[in-house]
Simulated assay, not measured.
Amino acid sequence: MNFDFNKKYGGWALVTGATSGIGEQIAEQLAADGMNLVLVARREEELKRNSQRISDKHNVKTEYIVADLSRSDGVNAVKKVNQNIGLLVLSAGLENNGAFEKINLESERQLVNVNVLSTMELAHHFSNLMVNKGKGGILFVASLFGQMGSPYFSNYAGSKAYVINFGQSLYGELKPKGVDVSILSPGLTKTPMADKTGVNWNKVPFAAKEPQDVARIALKNMGKKVVIVPGLRNQISAFSANLTPRKLLNTMVEKIMSSALPESKL
């Protein structure tokens, strides 16, 4: 699919969380569209390998930054990128689940640092540059869990609710200044992060989508929709969550998720 982002935003995109899942697929499809890439993730070997593979396959320039976005030095390393970034894709994320009081507090702090603080800081840094140019785009990656109460995913859902509200607010601010903002809010996706949750997803009424399909839908709608929810069933869930009384909705979700999680996490 031809997105023509090179003409719309400029020749370089920066993608965090670029070595797996949705972030990896977004990077792949941007390269296929002719965008040069700066890839950001924690694991250097995977980054180096992915960077070289994408460059060879799509004949684009690639660079990579090894950065732990739960740390301020990791975020600052990304801010020092030399390339003129026209499209920022904030796909990096952490997920914790289980009874909130049982989860290690440091793990929850790291989740907030990655999902909230690094997202805000990088959006702030690159939006400044984009506004000065009068063009650019920011694609946030949130979650369907952020659009509703999600017992046993409380901190994760709260962090993604921040991303959704933050992104929608920035859309209103930045659109008149020439900068597109969209928020991808996927449901269950076949990613390494979803596989590691410990949840028996067969007990949950969500249909898992392939990450390449989610990435394609995100890029197809980038700058055209504010919140992008891939899949009709997910769209219905998001719409229904706004209409269902919150007490009832959270009771229903708690019953579903408690049946899908191991007893040790409840």
Rank of each mutant, 00 (worst) to 15 (best):
V15F: 02
S107Q: 05
N155K: 02
L87Y: 11
N76A: 15
G167I: 04
R53E: 05
D213H: 15
R109E: 14
D195R: 10
A218R: 01
S258D: 09
A123S: 15
N234Y: 11
P230E: 09
G231E: 07
A32F: 04
E95G: 01
M252I: 15
G86F: 13
N82H: 01
F100L: 13
V78A: 13
K135L: 12
N113C: 11
S258I: 14
G137Y: 12
D213C: 11
A77Y: 12
V131E: 04
S127A: 10
K224F: 08
H125F: 08
V66E: 15
N250S: 15
L248N: 03
L174Q: 07
S55L: 05
S264V: 07
G11M: 02
A207H: 09
V179S: 04
L174E: 11
L39G: 04
S91A: 12
A77N: 14
N234C: 07
F100M: 08
F166H: 00
V38S: 00
D4P: 09
N59I: 04
P245F: 07
E101R: 01
N115C: 00
L69G: 11
F153S: 03
L170G: 01
F239W: 14
E121P: 05
S159L: 00
P230L: 04
T189V: 07
K7A: 15
V15L: 05
Q25C: 14
I26P: 07
A18I: 11
N242F: 03
M257F: 14
A238G: 14
E44C: 09
P262A: 02
V204K: 13
P186F: 00
V75H: 09
L219T: 06
V66I: 15
N97A: 04
M1S: 11
N155V: 08
G172Y: 02
N221D: 06
V114Y: 06
E210F: 10
A241R: 15
G34H: 06
H125T: 07
P151L: 10
P211V: 10
Q52W: 00
K224C: 04
Q52I: 01
P230K: 14
L174R: 04
F239G: 07
Y171T: 11
H125V: 09
N82L: 01
Y171W: 09
R233C: 02
R42M: 14
K225Q: 15
V114S: 07
V60T: 00
V204Y: 12
V226Y: 05
S127F: 05
N202I: 08
S237Q: 14
E44A: 15
I217W: 03
V89G: 03
D180H: 14
Q235S: 05
S72H: 07
Y156S: 02
A18K: 03
Q83R: 04
K102I: 03
I256Y: 13
V214M: 08
S20L: 10
K135V: 12
H58D: 06
N200Q: 09
D213Q: 15
G167L: 01
Q52P: 00
I183C: 01
Q52L: 03
N221P: 05
